[in-house]
Amino acid sequence: MYAIITFICGLLFGLGLAFSEMTNPAVVLGFLDVFGNWNPSLIIVMASAIAVGMIGYLIKGKRLAPFVASKWQVPTLRQIDSKLIIGSALFGIGWGISGYCPGPGLTALVNNPSEGIYFVIALIVGSAAHHFQTRAVKM
């Protein structure tokens, strides 16, 4: 059951990215080009996704546990720290350079492999750098 739901959610999420053309870095860069030739269509994507998402959290508020899993695993951290700010700032710079955030970058492996392969290898190396850095600190 977990497997089926997880796979279908991945599939639907990918279809959502494709429909909204977020899988195309030209569309994303157009959206980020606020001071140039701005393409505002991704505002509609964000706004509609967030509006529907909010309904989910309203329903969650009325339930003690999810329908399939036994407990909620939603992040509870509320502290705004320098890691959050610096990490998000670096992510935004990377996103603005290519127009790929993680999801669309992964789909580029198929949609645009001559770009996707380089982006995804670097994405993995970047994630690994953080993973092993934090592990080294803990030891």
Partner: peptide, 15 residues
């Protein structure tokens, strides 16, 4: 693409 991927990979984990 590599510079972008490194920043996105590291930044999203740190953030």
């Amino acid at each position: 693409l590599i510079i972008s991927g490194l920043l996105v990979g590291y930044g999203t984990r740190l953030g």
